[in-house]
C-alpha cells in the first residue's frame, strides 16, 4: 500500500489511505525523508485519519519520521488520530512524545501557517 505524498508549497502532505503493514510504514519513512531533502520542505503533515489501529511499531515509526525530519530542520505534524485510536494508544503507553499533533488536516495547516508566520 503506497502512501501518496503531495507537495503543497513549502509543506509535504502524506495521506495514509488504508491499513499499513510494517513494510509500508518503513517505505513511507524513507519516502518522506527523501522528499523533504529534495524539496527543502519546511514541514510535513502525516494524515492518519484512515488508520484504525496505531500499534507500537506504527507509533515508533511516526516518532522516527518526526525525529529525522527535525534533523533536516523541518517540522512534522501528525493529524487525524481518531478518538478510539488515541484511547487505545495511551493504554499501550504510546503518546508520540515530542511530536506535534492536530485534529485534522485543516488544523495541521493552520498550526503550521501560524508557526511560520510568527517566525519568518
Amino acid at each position: 500500500m503506497d502512501v501518496p505524498i503531495l507537495k503543497q508549497g513549502e509543506f509535504l502532505i502524506a495521506t495514509i489511505q488504508a491499513a499499513l503493514s510494517d513494510a509500508d510504514l518503513l517505505q513511507l519513512r524513507s519516502g518522506l525523508i527523501q522528499q523533504v531533502v529534495r524539496f527543502r520542505s519546511r514541514a510535513v503533515i502525516v494524515d492518519v485519519t484512515a488508520m484504525d489501529v496505531m500499534d507500537s511499531f506504527a507509533s515508533r515509526t511516526l516518532r522516527e519520521i518526526a525525529h529525522m525530519i527535525r534533523l533536516r530542520g523541518a517540522e512534522t505534524v501528525i493529524v487525524g488520530i481518531q478518538p478510539e485510536v488515541a484511547f487505545a494508544m495511551v493504554q499501550l503507553g504510546l503518546t508520540l512524545e515530542g511530536v506535534a499533533t492536530a485534529l485534522d488536516l485543516e488544523e495541521g495547516l493552520a498550526y503550521l501557517n501560524q508557526k511560520f508566520r510568527s517566525t519568518s
Binding site: M54, D55, S56, P83, A88
Partner: peptide, 27 residues
Amino acid sequence: GRTLAFELGFSSSDSTLVATAISELAR
C-alpha cells in the same frame, strides 16, 4: 479480530482495543 468483535456487538472503541492488542501480540 476487529470484524469478529464488531459482529459480536462490541463498541467501536472496544473493537479498536481488541484489534490493537492483536496487533501487538502478532508483532
